[in-house]
Amino acid sequence: MLPDPQKGLGRYYSYLNSAVKIIGSYQGHEPLAHFLKNYFSREKKYGGSDRKQVTQLCYAYYRLGKDFADLSFEQRVLLGLRLSSKEIAAPWNALLAIYKVPETFSGAVFPWKDQLSGGIDPAAFEHSFFVQPDLFLRIRPGNEAPVIKKLEQAALPFQKEGDALRLPNTAKAGEVLALNSEAVIQDLSSQRIAGFLHRFKSLALDVSQISPDVPGPGSRVSVWDCCAASGGKSILAADVLGTITLTVSDIRPSIIANLKKRFHEAGIKNFRSLVTDATKPDGQLSRERFDLVIADVPCSGSGTWSRTPERLHYFSTDEIKTYAGLQRRILANVTQSVKPGGFFLYITCSVFRAENEDQVAWLQQRGWVVKDQQVLEGYKLKADTMFGALLQKKANFI
């Protein structure tokens, strides 16, 4: 029950009431961003400023996770707003007082800290849910000067961090740049997968001296991106490794259709695309052997929940077991397609040990050798957190 509006606060009560109504009708079956877009398209009364305010309140609510059952919906929305905002407008401060929103809380936003991958700072990771990640671009080879010039001419604020550009998450980069051709939208941690690809490049050169199955200098490397999704890792591999023989696959036909469009924009012409289930042997692929198989596997996505905090709210630990089982089936299938002496790059955007180190340990038990393994910590950098491991199949692997 909302208190009677005080003078000057009516519009803010309305925003809060709208957010509570939306939260009550949202069940987590689709991304919150999609739900809100459809909701506002039906409810024409909301202007641009109204949508922005209500959207911020909805996301603030979900940033608290599912704890705080002792607080009302309104209190949880306002507490989330307090914790996730650098500055709060005076009317919101008034409502914080009216609703007696606590200054602090003792609940656990992320109660699964005992299941985190090694090296993750639990407190810092939990705090990251109150910080909206930035937008990141990766400059493609040969495009640094024109990309920076265009951003400066458009007065878009950015920070350069190596090949990465950090922009506000509301930046309309696609209105300024030729996306996928000049630069790709790619999270900072995802861009750091390039480190594994450089490592593969140097290791493959060494292996070629002793194994005829692995290409040497000047040879074309064969790569299978077996869970390709939108193709971001494949574009990165092409940029890092140079000319490659590329195969991409995904279980979803619509995703492969979108990938082809993106590859066209990126100038990637020589590739083979397949719709196939990575958990099951494919008649064609089962007979082939690749120098590098990349598996950015389906996962809980827990390293990205700062962008999608509704997942934090609706998450069940049963999902860890479900995803770990799916990942294990993918590993058992696709690793057979790596050449003796070749390499396997395992990637998740999860923070859970069962989806990360435990899967690598399972491969080690089967004779694979870990060459590099890292948690790519983004939670202190306003970015996603990911996990990557580069493993090698022994040359005498049977």
Rank of each mutant, 00 (worst) to 15 (best):
D318N: 14
G218C: 01
F196R: 06
K339H: 08
I268S: 03
N258H: 09
D50L: 02
G325T: 12
A89Q: 10
V54I: 14
I251V: 15
F136P: 14
Q364R: 07
T335K: 14
R311N: 14
A238D: 05
I251N: 07
I210C: 05
K44V: 07
R138A: 11
N143M: 10
Q186Y: 13
L71N: 11
A108N: 13
P3Q: 06
H264F: 15
F158G: 05
G65K: 01
S189H: 07
A19M: 04
F35V: 03
F40E: 00
A237V: 04
G80Q: 03
L71K: 14
G48V: 10
G65F: 04
F200D: 07
S211R: 10
I98C: 10
V248E: 00
G174Q: 06
D291Q: 06
W112M: 00
D187R: 00
L274E: 12
P309S: 06
I139P: 01
F271H: 06
A229P: 01
V338K: 05
R63H: 11
S117F: 00
T348F: 11
K100Y: 00
P102D: 03
D291F: 02
E161V: 13
D318A: 14
S222M: 05
K44A: 05
K21V: 00
E265H: 06
Q132R: 15
V176T: 12
Q56K: 11
I120Q: 00
D239V: 02
A90R: 13
Q159S: 12
C349F: 12
L179R: 02
V293P: 01
F73M: 15
A183S: 02
H264P: 13
R140K: 13
G216N: 05
F196A: 10
V369E: 13
Y346T: 07
S230P: 00
A324S: 10
K37R: 13
Y26C: 09
A173W: 14
R220Y: 07
Y12F: 14
L64A: 12
L292N: 04
A124K: 13
L363Q: 03
V101N: 05
R353H: 14
V351W: 08
Q327C: 01
L197Y: 01
D114G: 03
P146Y: 13
S254D: 15
W368T: 09
F387L: 11
N38H: 09
L165W: 12
D206V: 03
A145H: 09
S286F: 06
W362S: 15
R82I: 00
L83V: 08
L197W: 03
V293L: 13
H264K: 15
V207M: 08
L71S: 11
T335R: 13
K66W: 03
K21C: 10
A89Y: 03
A354T: 03
I347N: 11
A361P: 10
V131H: 03
E310I: 13
G119S: 06
T304R: 05
S25P: 02
